[in-house]
């Protein structure tokens, strides 16, 4: 049926949850302590998405640039907070730098794709601005966590390499380069791997959603290509900016690593 999506009955949604028995059985069999986490995460997901449905309904109805931007900023702040929690670094030191890194990359990517490529008359249109920003943010979060963890762990565990290059080259730029290279490779590689098999072993969520929503596959694919490029550039940009901002905070006047 074209133009509308088949709704899911509440009872069917509850029945759909019954397949969770499979992972729970596997965790119990192997005594993997993830059952409690799984239940909490599932509950959080339901509550958060239900709230989002209510917010989005309201936000979409108002479609106000300030409210839409405020919503995206809230998402940025939550993303920065989650990164800090997962990387286990000081919130006091890194919350503002990480938030700014994501904000700048989002401004550039949203401005370019929504304004120049899709050519929206109203760039802050909630139907485009919020979900596309959300997809970029969600992906940036994962890849930032991997990249930044790699960077901080590298500087902690391979200090001898940092000292070796810093003394012998006399350049901090050269001394941190191997660590930045490793962070970018580990942070971005999974995204490249995903892009290379897209359409073969994975049908992307945005494209599937658009087709389910009644869009033609050709339009859905064009949007998917665009969003993948936006996600890729957004991830590289936000990770690089986060690394640059982190560098301002993690070295003392002697060039020594501190606060990591």
């Amino acid at each position: 049926m074209k133009g509308s999506t088949q709704d899911i009955e509440l009872l069917n949604l509850i029945i759909g949850f019954s397949v969770m028995i499979i992972p729970i059985a596997i965790f119990l069999y192997y005594r993997v302590r993830l059952v409690k986490d799984l239940l909490i995460s599932s509950l959080r997901m339901i509550v958060q998405l239900a709230l989002v449905a209510v917010y989005l309904e309201w936000i979409f109805k108002l479609n106000n640039a300030w409210i839409n931007s405020a919503w995206v900023i809230v998402m940025i702040l939550i993303s920065a907070g989650t990164s800090i929690k997962r990387i286990k670094v000081s919130a006091k030191t890194f919350f503002i730098p990480f938030s700014l890194a994501v904000l700048f990359s989002l401004v550039i990517i949203d401005g370019f794709f929504l304004g120049l490529i899709i050519r929206l008359d109203y760039v802050f249109d909630a139907r485009y601005f919020i979900p596309i920003s959300g997809m970029i943010l969600g992906n940036s979060l994962n890849h930032n966590i991997v990249g930044l963890s790699t960077y901080f762990d590298g500087l902690k565990q391979k200090r001898e390499l940092y000292y070796f290059v810093l003394t012998n080259s006399g350049s901090q730029k050269l001394a941190i380069r191997p660590f930045i290279q490793e962070a970018l490779v580990k942070g971005i590689n999974p995204l490249l791997a995903g892009m290379s098999v897209m359409g073969l072993i994975s049908l992307p969520g945005m494209m599937t959603g658009q087709i389910l929503g009644g869009a033609s596959p050709a339009t859905a694919i064009k949007y998917q290509i665009m969003i993948m490029i936006a996600i890729f550039v957004g991830c590289v940009l936000s990770l690089t900016l986060s690394l640059w901002y982190a560098n301002v905070k993690i070295f003392d006047k002697y060039g020594n690593v501190k606060g990591v």
Partner: peptide
Amino acid sequence: VRSQLAYIPQNIHLP
């Protein structure tokens, strides 16, 4: 000071 130094560490893992 560092510009006068060369540093040779032991058993360093190089990337």
